[in-house]
Design a binder for these strands. Structure first.
Lengths: 153, 153
DNA sequence: TTAGGTGCAAAGAGTTTGCTCGTAT
DNA sequence: ATACGAGCAAACTCTTTGCACCTAA
């Protein structure tokens, strides 16, 4: 079946090779923010005839076409996620490396105001929180995550 | 004369070689966020007997000792600034690459609240704005930057 | 005196690219 | 048919490191 990302590629007139189809599928199925090596690992499992150079070339192409967004969470490797609907940001669990997404429209407004105050139009921004899972407070009121868009890793 | 950074090094019991003294001075005099190559360039001008390996080793040491902070503004190279007083963030002028610092305590509170809502304690965070200098609006009410801590680059 | 710093060049990690061959359109 | 993609290995950029020598304390 045609994956979501593959459809986007076709819409933009990209030539769909077997390799691109596989990478597109891996990306469509990812609910995390994989780096190139991780994408490569997953892709090779579906089709061994893929080289890491192709993965690099493909993510770059898809980024240029606006299908993917490149993230940098530190650690010196780029990580990718499909371009999506609304703005969201990332909270990185400093112990596990997991990434939690969240959004906060109120917050966006504040940023725009800050830029304006400095004499700039806000073109884009980057916000990352690094946090540590809070110890269950004395009272064991077991309550799962209170909010958040739900994507993980 | 003993530079501010050199004083900090001595306080922490670091052995002060000629090279370190020069690098400390360059850092003390920098009002921007230089990368290693830029530090090296400036240091060599003061004393040609400095290798870039020493600059790398020194900034790493100073970062470990809490004297410097490493920044990543994209572009794949680390940039450094002395550890300072209050938190501040950066607005990068997308046209010139200049970095403007600003702070916004209100904003900090919002971030902490977001982390809490997600079940985390906020350990640290990263916020960068990318903006474009606003065209002088029709009326030429020449007014310089309205706010900001003042460091540049 | 000696623990630790330095220069140099080589090694690493992540990413890009030249070239030749292969394939989607 | 042909413009474009893929694989491989070499090249590149930024950063770290092994080793022999040097120096601050």
């Amino acid at each position: 079946m045609e994956s979501r990302i593959e459809r986007l590629c076709v819409e933009r007139g990209l030539k769909m090779t077997g390799q691109r189809r596989v990478i597109a599928r891996v990306l469509s199925e990812a609910s995390d923010h994989p780096d190139v090596e991780e994408l490569y690992r997953r892709a090779v499992q579906l089709d061994a005839r893929i080289s890491i150079a192709t993965v690099y070339r493909t993510v770059r192409l898809l980024e240029e076409r606006g299908i993917l967004e490149r993230r940098d969470f530190g650690g010196g490797r780029a990580r990718y996620e499909p371009t999506e609907h609304g703005h969201h940001h990332h909270l990185i669990d400093v112990d596990s490396g997991r990434v939690i997404e969240f959004e906060d429209p109120e917050h966006e407004r504040v940023l725009k105001a800050i830029a304006t105050r400095l004499g700039f139009d806000l073109v884009s921004h980057r916000l990352e929180l690094f946090g540590r899972r809070r110890e269950a407070p004395a009272e064991p009121a077991a309550k799962p995550a209170a909010n958040g868009a739900g994507r993980r890793s």
